[in-house]
Design a binder for these strands. Structure first.
Lengths: 143, 143
DNA sequence: TGTAATGTCTCTAGCAACTAGAGGTTCAAG
DNA sequence: CTTGAACCTCTAGTTGCTAGAGACATTACA
């Protein structure tokens, strides 16, 4: 059995994050020691590693919840898992496309900055006037 | 003079967002009508458009706050604005790099999924075992 | 056996950047 | 003059955690 600290360091997840996952129902409530400390079986490590890995791949917790419930039913079709993964891929690609447009515009803006005074600054000017943009970049990916 | 609704639709910013910007000190408190409604001068439109545009380019509000205070001092050097923009460019590029690695891994994962049952599902399997990854993708950009 | 240093517990509050809703007032049109 | 849209303030929710307070548990070492 693992304490929460061991579990966290083994899985590469911080202790408060584990408690948070428990709180939102992503991890089951573990048994407790005589002194009320959480004690995890080995299997919890797999589940937590799964979550961590999926998070690193950008899956939102809701999607991970779905994937976990799928992985608990090994005999069902994995079509649902495929759909979730594909949605995540599409979202990732959309984000990349958008970020590349932003990158191009930032580059343009910075290249044009002669670094004189604010009043001639292209950075400030471009930001102030959307008409300077080469691309459209409406609706917000943002940060 | 513009009402908050006119201002919002002209700048492409939602009304509650404008109030939020005021609350956090990004927009000055405007005068009010006899009936306590906000009335904005034309200049507020420029300022709000500036904010919106910078947000679209992924600048965090703190950076925008700095840029706005710079743009209020037209005689100073624009080196500071340049630094902020360059930091934003670097952050954008880092995010792109990371997302491309994620994209590649998601593609690989999905390609390998034969869409049988969950127990043979590569999506689930890859998520469960970090050792399957082609790349490292530690520390979290995530979604 | 004592004690000191971790580790753990619960709880609350905070971060970005908004968004949504309740419950009420004011304004513009017909 | 009434209806309906737009406005007001306030609180709370979103996502995915992180930080801190104050108290208890466990472990290591002397």
């Amino acid at each position: 059995m693992l304490t929460i600290g061991k579990l966290g360091s083994s899985a590469g997840v911080k202790v408060p994050t584990i408690r948070y996952y428990e709180q939102i129902g992503l991890l089951p409530e573990p048994d407790r020691s005589a002194g009320n400390q959480r004690l995890y079986p080995r299997a919890a490590l797999d589940r937590l590693a799964f979550i961590r890995h999926a998070r690193e791949l950008g899956f939102p917790l809701d999607a991970i919840r779905d994937l976990l419930s799928l992985s608990d039913k090994p005999d069902q079709s994995c079509a649902a898992a495929d759909i979730i993964a594909k949605a995540q891929l599409a979202a990732t690609r959309a984000r990349i496309t958008r970020l590349r447009a932003l990158e191009a515009e930032l580059e343009r803006m910075i290249d044009q900055c002669a670094c004189g005074t604010i009043s001639d600054c292209r950075v400030i000017e471009v930001l102030g006037d959307h008409a300077h943009c080469a691309h459209d970049h409406h609706e917000g990916e943002a940060a």
